[in-house]
Nucleic acid binder design. Structure first.
Length: 672
DNA sequence: AGTAAAAGGTTTTTT
DNA sequence: ACCTTTTACT
C-alpha cells in the first residue's frame, strides 16, 4: 500500500531482482503491469540488476498481453485455434457497426446509439459483470430505451466473434479466467511460483479472479497499489479488489509506504490537502497512525490507511495558481512560464503540461507551434485511429488472414462507387469467411465484379496484393507497394490526401524494424503507440521537447515542473461526474495524481471564460470558477490574476440602426 | 437499387 | 471533427 512517489515500481523491481538473485527461475515469475511500456522498463531494470541470469525471460506484461500469450498455448482447451485474431477497440466498434446494419437497426426512423457507445456499454457490462439493465440506468441513461435492441445486437456480435474465431480485449480476460477454472487450470497454476502485480487499484473484478486463479497453494503473491490513485473506475476497475485482498488471500502482510522521494513539502501539502477531502464513506478508514518505520499492520479485514505523504525535501518554490481571462491568455502565460523555466535550467524534457481531456490542450498546442516550442502529446487521437492508417493496416490484415471480414470490408469500401451493397455482393463472390475458400487468391485472380468507377483501382489493388502475398519483401516494402493503390484511392476519399499519404510513408519507415508482417501487426494491436508518430520512432524534433499529457496517461511519470491546465470546476471535476458521489470521488483522485507528478515546481491555471461545448460553432461561453477541490487550498498557492486591461475592445451596444436593411436593398438592386 | 452528398447530432478519461 | 440518418441523384 504505497502513496504517490514512495517507490512502488522500485519496490517491485527490487523484489523481482532479489528473487532472481536467489536463483528463482525467471520463467516462473509472472509480473503483471498496467502498460506494456511499464513491463518492458521493469524487466529491463531487473535484467540490469542481475546480469547473466536471463532475467528477460520473466513473464512480464499487461493482463491482456499475457492472456494473449497463454491462450495461444492453451487456448485449444477453450476451443480456440492457435491463430485466432485479436480485435482492438476500433475493430470491435466496427464489428458492432457491421452487425448493426445486418440486423437492420436505425432504419426505423428512430435514432440508435452510435457504434462507439454500443461498444462502451458492452464493455462496461462485461467488465463490471453487471446486468445490462443496471448498466443502462446507472451509466447510460440516455440509451435506456434501446435495451431490447441492444440484447439482440450483443447476441449477434458474440455469435460473429465465435464463428470467426476472433477475440476482443474483454474476451482475452474472460477466456483466461475461464481457463483457470477449467481442468487446464491446474496446469496454469503449475507455471508460476511468484505472481506480482503493479497498480492493483486499477484492476477489475475479472482480473482479480484471474490473479486468484493463477496462484497455486505454494505460489507467492505480491500486489502493489495506491487506493488514492484509482482513476479507472470508468473502465470498471474497482478498489474493492485492494480492500478485499487480505480477506481473499489469508495470511496477507500489509506494508505501507508513506515517505515520498519525489516532491517538495509545499507540493505535498497540496496533495495531502486534496486527499483530506476524500469523503467516500464506503471506504473503511483506519485512522490509527501508522508507524512509518515498522510500516507493518496485521492483515485484518479490509483496512485502509489514510496516507499523509511526507518528504525530507522540506522547502521549495511555492506552487503557483494562475487565473486567466480566457484560454488564449492561459496558453500565452504558460508558454512564457515554460520558456522561463528553461532559462532557469529546467530542460523541456523535465517539464510537462497535464489536462483532464485531450482537447483541453488544443489552444496551447497552437501557441507552442507559433513559438516553435517542440512538444509531444500523449493521449488524444491516436495515429492508428486515423482513417487512412486503418485503411492500410486493413490491407496488411487481409494479406495476413484472408478470412478477416472486417479488414476486407474496409479495403473494398475504400474504392470509388463501392458502398455497402457492393461490398456484401463481393464478399459473397469471394466467399470471404468460408474456411479454406482462400478469398485472397480468388480476388487476385480477378474474381469479383466491380463497378466501372472502381475498375482501375481494383486492378491496382489486385496487383498490389499479389505482389505482397509471397512476402519475399519485408513489411516496410509491402507498405510502399500498397501505397501505390492508396495514391489512386485517397484523392477522392479524403480532402487532404497528400498529408495522409505522407503518413503512410511514416508507417513504412516504422515497419522497417520488423522482420515479418505478422509481428508488425500483432505488436500494433496489443501495444498501440500512445503518441502520434510513435510508430516511426521519435519525430525529427530537437533533442529536447515538452510533454503534453492527459492526467490518465501521466500515471507513474514525474517531472521537475508540472503545469495543470483548465483546473476549473466543470473540467476537474468533469461536468459529467457531478451526478454521483462515486464519479466525484474519482475526479478528486485524478487531481491527486496530477499534483503528485511534480518534483519541484507546480503551476495550476484556469481561464475564467470557456466555451460551453467543444463542437460549438458559436461563441457561447460561461464564466468559470476554480475547481471546488482546490478552492479550500488556495492558501497553499502563490496567486496571480491576469485580466486584460479594461481599455481593450469595449462592447459598445447601440440599437439596431438598420444597416442590414440597407445592404439587402443594395444587393437586391443588382438583380431586380 | 445503390451510391454519394447534405443535414443533423454528439457525453471525458484508455488497457 | 466525426458518425449516423436522410435526401438527392445515377
Amino acid at each position: 500500500m504505497a502513496g504517490a512517489g514512495t517507490g512502488k515500481t522500485r519496490t517491485l523491481v527490487a523484489r523481482v531482482a532479489g528473487l532472481v538473485d536467489q536463483g528463482v527461475d525467471p520463467d516462473r515469475i509472472l509480473l503483471l503491469t498496467f502498460t506494456r511500456r511499464a513491463a518492458a522498463e521493469m524487466v529491463g531494470r531487473v535484467a540490469a540488476t542481475c546480469p547473466g541470469r536471463s532475467a528477460d525471460r520473466i513473464w512480464g506484461g499487461t493482463f491482456h498481453s499475457i492472456a494473449n500469450r497463454l491462450l495461444r498455448r492453451y487456448g485449444a482447451a477453450a476451443g480456440l485455434p492457435e491463430g485466432f485474431t485479436v480485435l482492438d477497440h476500433d475493430d470491435s466498434t466496427d464489428l458492432f457497426s457491421l452487425v448493426r446494419t445486418e440486423e437492420g437497426f436505425g432504419q426505423r426512423g428512430r435514432r440508435f446509439p452510435r457504434a462507439e457507445t454500443i461498444a462502451a456499454i458492452y464493455s462496461r457490462m462485461v467488465n463490471s459483470r453487471a446486468r445490462l439493465d443496471d448498466v443502462l440506468t446507472v451509466d447510460f441513461p440516455w440509451c435506456a430505451d434501446h435495451g431490447d435492441d441492444l440484447r439482440t445486437l450483443f447476441g449477434a456480435y458474440t455469435e460473429h466473434k465465435r464463428r470467426n474465431h476472433v477475440l476482443d480485449y474483454d474476451d482475452l480476460l474472460l477466456f483466461w479466467r475461464g481457463l483457470t477454472v477449467s481442468p487446464v487450470g491446474e496446469a496454469l497454476r503449475c507455471l508460476f511460483d511468484h505472481v506480482l502485480i503493479d497498480e492493483y487499484q486499477d484492476s477489475n473484478s475479472i482480473q482479480a479472479d484471474i490473479v486468484g486463479g493463477m496462484c497455486g497453494p505454494d505460489a507467492e503473491l505480491c500486489a502493489v497499489g495506491d487506493d488514492a490513485q484509482a482513476i479507472y473506475g470508468f473502465r470498471a476497475a474497482t478498489v474493492a479488489n485492494m480492500w478485499a485482498f487480505p480477506t481473499t488471500h489469508p495470511g496477507t502482510e500489509v506494508i505501507v509506504l508513506e515517505q515520498n522521494y519525489r516532491s517538495t513539502m509545499p507540493i505535498l501539502a497540496v496533495a495531502n490537502g486534496v486527499l483530506d477531502q476524500q469523503t467516500d464513506d464506503r471506504q473503511p478508514v483506519d485512522r490509527q497512525p501508522v508507524d512509518a518505520e515498522a510500516g507493518v499492520a496485521a492483515g485484518g479485514p479490509a483496512s485502509i490507511y489514510r496516507k499523509q505523504l511526507w518528504s525530507t525535501r522540506r522547502t521549495g518554490p511555492q506552487p503557483g495558481l494562475v487565473c486567466c481571462a480566457d484560454e488564449g491568455e492561459q496558453s500565452r502565460i504558460l508558454a512564457e512560464r515554460i520558456l522561463d523555466a528553461r532559462e532557469r535550467g529546467i530542460d523541456l524534457r523535465d517539464q510537462a503540461v497535464l489536462f483532464r481531456a485531450g482537447h483541453h490542450a488544443d489552444g496551447l498546442e497552437l501557441e507552442l507551434v507559433r513559438r516553435d516550442i517542440p512538444y509531444v502529446k500523449y493521449g488524444g487521437l491516436k495515429y492508428l485511429e486515423t482513417a487512412h492508417v486503418k485503411d492500410l493496416l486493413s490491407m496488411l490484415r487481409v494479406l495476413e488472414n484472408p478470412e478477416d471480414q472486417l479488414a476486407w470490408h474496409r479495403v473494398l469500401r475504400s474504392m470509388d462507387g463501392i458502398g455497402p451493397a457492393t461490398v456484401a455482393r463481393l464478399a459473397e463472390e469471394l466467399r470471404i469467411a468460408k474456411p479454406g475458400s482462400n478469398a485472397l487468391a480468388r480476388f487476385v485472380d480477378g474474381i469479383g465484379r466491380v463497378p466501372t468507377a472502381a475498375a482501375e483501382q481494383a486492378a491496382e489493388l489486385r496487383a498490389a496484393l499479389a505482389d505482397c502475398v509471397a512476402e519475399e519483401i519485408g513489411p516496410s516494402a509491402q507498405i510502399d507497394r500498397l501505397k501505390r493503390f492508396c495514391d489512386l484511392v485517397f484523392p477522392s476519399r479524403y480532402d487532404n490526401s497528400e498529408a495522409r499519404l505522407a503518413d503512410i510513408d511514416q508507417l513504412a519507415i516504422g515497419a522497417r524494424g520488423y522482420s515479418t508482417r505478422s509481428r508488425f501487426l500483432t505488436e500494433l494491436t496489443l501495444d498501440p503507440p500512445s503518441k502520434t508518430g510513435d510508430v516511426a520512432g521519435p519525430p525529427h524534433l530537437d533533442d529536447d521537447w515538452l510533454t503534453l499529457s492527459t492526467i490518465h496517461s501521466a500515471k507513474g511519470c514525474e517531472w521537475d515542473a508540472v503545469y495543470l491546465l483548465h483546473a476549473a470546476d466543470g473540467n476537474i471535476p468533469s461536468e459529467m461526474a457531478l451526478g454521483d458521489a462515486r464519479g466525484l470521488a474519482e475526479e478528486l483522485r485524478l487531481l491527486y495524481v496530477a499534483v503528485t507528478r511534480a518534483r519541484t515546481e507546480l503551476t495550476v491555471s484556469f481561464p475564467l471564460r470557456f466555451h460551453v461545448n467543444r463542437f460549438a460553432t458559436d461563441d457561447r461561453h460561461v464564466y468559470a470558477q476554480l475547481s471546488r477541490f482546490l478552492e479550500p487550498l488556495r492558501h497553499h498557492f502563490a496567486e496571480t490574476v491576469n485580466l486584460p486591461p479594461d481599455d481593450g475592445d469595449p462592447a459598445l451596444i447601440v440599437g439596431n440602426v438598420g444597416v442590414a436593411d440597407e445592404v439587402d436593398a443594395m444587393l437586391e438592386a443588382l438583380w431586380s
